[in-house]
Amino acid sequence: MGDVYQALADPTRRLILDELTERDGQSLFELCSRLVMRHGVTSSRQAISQHLAVLEDAGLVSSRRFGRTKLHHLHTEPLREIAERWPAEPKE
């Protein structure tokens, strides 16, 4: 399992998580289109694919086939550790 903090450290990877929050289950093409059209991220498809691999390694994204198309899904479970470790309200 990759490091969740390192996965979150990159602004493009955070944008990928934002877009998957808006709609879960996107192809690489859709994610690349959203990043360039909405955020001006002009990274190559290859680069976005590598970002997805880092997110997947950290357990934040998984992929599965829809027909023959690979769709990417968001998983926020690894982020729970942050709220549990550093609660917004101090522990009693």
């Binding site: 192809s27 859709e30 909405r38």
Partner: peptide, 17 residues
């Protein structure tokens, strides 16, 4: 559809099989 209608700048796109 593999992509539901989505605003992509000046256009709305959707992608079907």
């Amino acid at each position: 559809f593999t992509q539901e209608p989505t605003v992509m700048g000046p256009v709305v796109t959707a992608i079907l099989d």
